[in-house]
Amino acid sequence: MTTPVLEARDVTMRFGGLTAVRSVDFTVNSGEIVGLIGPNGAGKTTFFNCLTGLYVPTEGTVSYQGKVLPPKPHLVTQAGIARTFQNIRLFANMTVLENVLVGRHTRTKEGLWSALLRGPGFRKAEKESEAKAMELLEFIGLAAKRDHLARNLPYGEQRKLEIARALASEPGLLLLDEPTAGMNPQETRATEDLVFAIRDKGIAVLVIEHDMRFIFNLCDRVAVLVQGEKLVEGTSDVVQADERVVAAYLGEPFEGDPGAAEAAEVEAAEATAEAEGAESAEPADSAETAEPADSAATTDTVESTEADSTTKGEAQ
């Protein structure tokens, strides 16, 4: 179960003077769902693009099942890594079925000549492709809409279709870039089930997401990327308990910082209000009193960031 599917070694990506990703080591094992989180601008999508060959990493290598991947997107897909995009990038003016059929491109061989001559091999391959595509559409529940144009699907279904299209290339690893962005809680739940179902098909999944509840429900392992560097990696509990993660999302309190003190004050006030404590909120004037309150309320803060991100997502 623990054979590595994807191994990124020392991946660094620089754009001129800006280092977007700094020597990240990263592994995804087979049958695993791994989450990649980090504040906005942390380099998650850049790292994704390095993995899928859209960017050529300045340093480091990415290997899939032990073989180093060439930095060409179509070769990466051929090797067995499929992805979705943060902003939906369906083929808007193709039908739902055609979109999935395009995903089958690497798994079929028919070239121009066989298309022109239409031999029995061509027909058979087309029929098989269509059967596979319909299977996937049934899997995600869009079989009835096969002849609709992708652009006319509602948002949530477009997201699903993008996943189906990625699955059509029969990947060993699926990379999902913010699959629940802009979804309501019900759709997010459905996506969660879908990702589990994909995992059950034996496909490893790597997810970027801002929705913390989604990530921590879903993932066996979570890595946190902050300013291009991998900060922590581990199970949800480990990551949630890590102070640096909280600091990365909320900013780091340091001694004598009035901002931090104020924030702590507000938090403390909220905590007490929530607990319906009879004690009145005492002004926390030193950082020492703020610190323990902070670490005690870690889960709370994480949850509050999650609430933040969901509202943000819905506003998008």
Partner: peptide, 19 residues
């Protein structure tokens, strides 16, 4: 297959290469 890939490239080249 080839015609679909042409149309896919017309629609979105980046997504097409990623497929």
């Amino acid at each position: 297959r080839i015609g679909r890939s042409w149309i896919a490239i017309r629609e979105d080249e980046t997504a097409a290469t990623a497929m």
